[in-house]
């Protein structure tokens, strides 16, 4: 029997995406004008959805502890809700767990040989288990993009399942690394591939933030439309996390508008939606302060590395 390649069979099931059309749609979200109280609401909501992230070779327990303080209380005077999670490398999980004990802020850890995923499955699974054992509430894994592009979808799905099982009670976030999948068809197919083995409340996530191609409104749109279709077909509610490149409040609001108008109100909370970002929180706070005081704020009060200019 002639069998079409697995990716084409999957696309037959889930449908394809027209690139120009989805980019036009995405551009429309960016024309929404969010003012006054709706802006304040959106900024606070976005802050509560941040996975405050540090993924540097130079990370130390001290730096992570400092990040955790910011996660809990981002500003001295203006009320900013705590972020959703702090996201670190597995070696930093213990430091984060210690710093966040007793708070609502969860500890997330990238694992599975982040960001390339190029390590034997055994060691990737061991990494996941170690992070969970150290107290991680959430695991951010990467898929095997090479295997996906080569058409070995079974392997990609199998590995997601095994990581899911290794997570135990921890929430799983599956990073598709959309920039390396390159086409919207691939992003849609990979979203379904992952979602079909995920549990309600697990995430699909755009990017590692470690490549030049990050979350865009268009690839985000493809993924949230996939989440919507999967939900309507199966009843399973998968959560979404764009990551990488979302640096300012205005962009974050555009992403949230897309969520509001595609998935609806049920996804406008940090159980169903996160922003993976290291510097976004700074700008959210800066804009919130501006909303309170009416004055545009200089950057240096809100970020550690704004430079001296």
């Amino acid at each position: 029997m002639i069998q079409r390649p697995a990716l084409l069979r999957l696309l037959d099931e889930v449908g394809t995406v027209d690139a120009v059309g989805v980019e036009e749609r995405a551009a429309k979200f960016a024309t929404r004008s969010i003012k006054r109280e709706s802006k304040r609401f959106g900024l606070r909501l976005a802050a509560s959805m941040v996975d405050l992230t540090t993924l540097e070779g130079k990370d130390t327990p001290g730096k992570v502890a400092s990040l955790c303080r910011k996660a809990l209380r981002a500003h001295d005077t203006v009320e900013v809700p705590p972020v959703a999670a702090v996201c670190v490398y597995p070696t930093m999980v213990r430091a984060a767990v210690g710093a966040l004990a007793g708070s609502s802020v969860r500890v997330a850890s990238v694992a599975t040989a982040f960001p390339s995923g190029q390590a034997p499955i055994k060691s990737r699974l061991a990494e996941v288990k170690a992070a969970v054992a150290d107290g991680a509430d959430e695991i951010d894994m990467v898929i095997q993009r090479g295997a996906f592009l080569a058409g070995d979808l079974v392997r990609v799905r199998d590995e997601i399942e095994r990581v899911r099982d290794a997570c135990g009670e921890a929430t799983l976030k599956v990073i598709l690394e959309t920039g390396e999948l390159e086409t919207y068809d691939n992003i849609r197919a990979a979203s379904f591939l992952a979602m079909r083995v995920l549990r309600p409340g697990d995430f699909i996530k755009t990017s590692t933030g470690k490549t030049s191609a990050n979350a865009t409104l268009a690839n985000h749109q493809v993924m949230i439309e996939a989440i919507r279709d999967h939900y309507l077909a199966s009843g399973t509610e998968i959560a979404m996390k764009p990551a990488g490149g979302i640096r300012n409040a205005k962009e974050a609001l555009h992403f949230l508008v897309a969520v509001k108008e595609t998935l609806g109100d049920a996804w406008l909370n940090n159980r169903r939606y996160r922003f993976g970002a290291s510097s976004l929180l700074n700008d959210l706070v800066r804009q919130l302060v501006k909303q309170e005081t009416g004055a545009y704020q200089a950057p240096w009060n809100f970020t550690e590395n704004a430079g001296g200019y």
Partner: peptide, 13 residues
Amino acid sequence: ARELLFGDLWEFD
């Protein structure tokens, strides 16, 4: 039962 909720959680001014 599987319906999307397009409500007023986040109203635009």
